[in-house]
Each structure stands twice: as structure tokens, then as C-alpha cells.
Amino acid sequence: MEDREQPDSSPRQPARPARSRHRRGFGPAGLWMVLGGAVIVLLLVYGAGRLFDAASPGADPEPSASRDPSPGIDGVIARDVPAGQLLVGDCLNDFGGPLGTATVVTCRTPHTSQLIGLEALPEGGYPGDDRATELAEQACKAITLSPAAALSGSWNYEFSRPSRATWEAGDRGVACFLTLTEGRSSDSLLPAEGPAA
């Protein structure tokens, strides 16, 4: 008996010719993809640099306001002074609120606001927003004002206070301002400093 191969009855696919998928050059779509990727990388590098600059200790994003030691007839000492650069006793016009900018003028120059004090809230855990506001207001109202200051008109206390985030970073500061709701004052609200004893 001879062994014969039985013909394979399973269906077979005929061989297909190989096709090359090789492209030459990028073409317009490839060029746009490369340019888009480069722009994304540049934006990421720029964003990381901005974050690093903002988180760097000692980074001062605001330039220091230049004060005129001899103001002219307009009484302007400095314009657009950031809140963090105001000094206790500064009399202010164009007051932008406790965290805004202001124009510092001599206190003999008609003005609408004055930074009357910088206080600190007690150490400990964050007291919560309402309690922090209450403590800040109490600290500002405890500041001694000049009995000679003409408190005519309606004055409001305005102040900044720490938020939970700034508290956790060590901030306990309160900046206290008095602001006229109408009119202007030409006096300091703070007592004159006496001679050193």
C-alpha cells in the first residue's frame, strides 16, 4: 500500500503582494503635527517657569514704589503703591481697598483714607473665616486714634485678614484702614509721635 498525500481540502487565501507604506517627507499634515508639538512643549516650559517664579521664596512680583521725600504742591508722595508697601500713617487717595493700590499723599493734603495700623492675630489654629474677620475688626478698632483728629463725616473700618491658605503659610497680619464715605480729611487720624524719652 502506498502512502499518498491526501489533497488539502481547507480553503487557502492566495498570496498577496507586499505593499510599501514608506512615505517620503512629512507632508503638510506631518509638518503641522511637529509645529503643534513644539508649541505645546514651549507652553509647558513657559508655564513651569511661571509656577517656579511664583513659588520661589523672596520673589517680589511688584516693583517697589518710589516715594518722593519732598512732595510738591499736589502733596503726592507716591502713586499706585501696592498694599504690601504701604506704611502705618500713610494718608491715601485713590484707595483700591485693603488689597489694592493707592496714592500716598501728605496728611495735610485732602485725602479719603489712612492706614492706621498693622496688627497680628493670635497664634494657634485657623479660627475660621467669620472668627478671623471678627478678630481683625476688634484689633483695628482697638488702635488709638488722635483725639485732635476731626472725625467729622462717616468713617468706615476696612481691613485685610489672613485666609486659611495664608494662615497655613504663617500669615497672621491685619492691615487696618479708616476710610471716609464722603468728603475728604486734611489731618492724620493717628496721634503725633512725641519726643523720645
Score class of each variant (00 low, 15 high):
Ala54Met: 12
Asp187Trp: 05
Gly97Leu: 02
Arg131Met: 14
Pro14Val: 01
Met1Lys: 03
Pro110Ser: 05
Pro98Gln: 04
Gly75Pro: 02
Thr144Arg: 13
Leu118Thr: 13
His111Tyr: 04
Ser185Glu: 03
Ser64Leu: 08
Gly47Ile: 04
Asn93Gly: 03
Trp155Leu: 09
Ser9Met: 07
Arg161Asp: 02
Pro98Thr: 05
Glu62Leu: 14
Gly27Met: 05
Ser10Met: 11
Ala150Gln: 09
Leu115Pro: 00
Pro71His: 08
Glu168Arg: 15
Arg23Thr: 12
Gly100Ala: 07
Ala59Arg: 15
Gln85Met: 08
Gly183Trp: 08
Glu2Ala: 13
Cys140Phe: 09
Gln85Asn: 07
Leu99Glu: 14
Gln138Ser: 11
Ser70His: 15
Pro162Asp: 09
Glu5Tyr: 03
Ser163Met: 09
Leu99Phe: 06
Thr109Pro: 06
Gly25Lys: 12
Ser9Arg: 14
Asp74Pro: 01
Ile116Asp: 05
Thr179Pro: 00
Gly47Leu: 13
Leu121Trp: 07
Gln6Arg: 11
Gly124Leu: 01
Ala192Pro: 03
Asn156Ser: 13
Ala132Tyr: 09
Gly97Phe: 04
Gly183Val: 04
Leu115Thr: 00
Leu31Val: 13
Leu43His: 01
Phe159Ser: 14
Pro195His: 12
Gln114Asp: 02
Ser66Pro: 00
Gly100Met: 04
Arg24Tyr: 04
Thr103Asn: 05
Glu182Cys: 00
Arg172Ser: 06
Gly117Leu: 00
Gly128Met: 07
Ala148Phe: 06
Leu42Ala: 15
Val76Glu: 07
Ser113Pro: 02
Asp3Cys: 13
Gln138Cys: 00
Ala102Thr: 04
Ser146Tyr: 02
Ala15Gln: 14
Thr101Tyr: 02
Thr181Met: 11
Val45Ser: 03
Pro61Arg: 11
Leu118Glu: 12
Ala38Ile: 14
Asp90Ala: 06
Trp32Glu: 00
Arg131Gly: 01
Gly170Ile: 09
Ser20Gly: 06
Cys140Leu: 09
Ala59Cys: 00
Gly183His: 07
Ser152Ile: 02
Cys91Asp: 05
Arg12Gly: 04
Phe52Arg: 13
Ser186Gly: 11
